[in-house]
Amino acid sequence: MLDEHVAGHREIVPDPPPGDIAIRLQCVELRYGPKIVLSDCSMDCQRGEITCVIGLSGAGKSTILRVINGLRHASRGHVFVNGDETTHLSDRKLNEIRRKMGFAFQYSALFDSLTVGENVAYPLWEHTELNPTEIRERVEKTLETLGLEGVDKRMPSELSGGMQKRVGFARAVVNDPEIILFDEPTTGLDPIMTHVITETIQNIQKRLKATCVVVSHDMPSVYRVADNIAMLFEGTIIENGPVQQIKASRNPIVQQFLEGSEDGPIPL
């Protein structure tokens, strides 16, 4: 009785995961007021691999990325990033962890008052001691890697959706992060641009050897890039493992989602 009482007030932080796991979510719960967005959500992301989080629209996929980055704080549970438990960190320590992370947003989230070059340079201005010439060189090189030569002087509003996505990627990877989070990278793009973006993610991961978490429900892209897949349903990870394991899953929810079928346990 006493133990239960004490446990309710003093949460015991579990041991950090082994070194080959870059990100661990352990029994994470997240609420927006009375609404539970994530519930008992647990998953591991292997270091240097691409983990894709799949699930229905509104299932909480993007929220998982925000929890990993510390933009949303879990109401319960633990989040480990590179061995550090981040749920109760101070803003200063959290910012140190965020500096080793890149976040490519669904709608790019480019700063509309800055040029493309300034957008990509922003993390370098804030977090490095590089001089303006070095920053310019790094920005040009990063833009070139993503097939965006010569656009650094243009404003984000002058670019197509696909180019904006790639500028968002460039900003996310310009300071060589250890972890990169991609939120719906191919949503709303035509098949050719989807292919380009998917290849870009693979190339970035190979070049930086970073741990990537990609949130998507575009299954052809997921199969191309993923090393591991985690399926999120009603705020909980119901299946997590290598691609072949997920494809062979006997879970009817996973099967219905992968087949894109109307018939099954997923309510329409």
């Binding site: 925000r66 980055n69 933009l71 803003d91 959290l94 910012n95 140190e96 962890i97 965020r98 500096r99 992370m101 976040f103 947003f105 669904q106 709608y107 989230a109 480019l110 700063f111 509309d112 922003y122 993390p123 804030e126 977090h127 900003r171």
Partner: peptide, 17 residues
């Protein structure tokens, strides 16, 4: 408008206050 277009979140995600 920066908040609703996720620009402020983008700043925070970079560790910039």
């Amino acid at each position: 408008s920066m908040v609703v277009t996720e620009q402020v979140e983008a700043l925070e995600s970079m560790g910039v206050s």
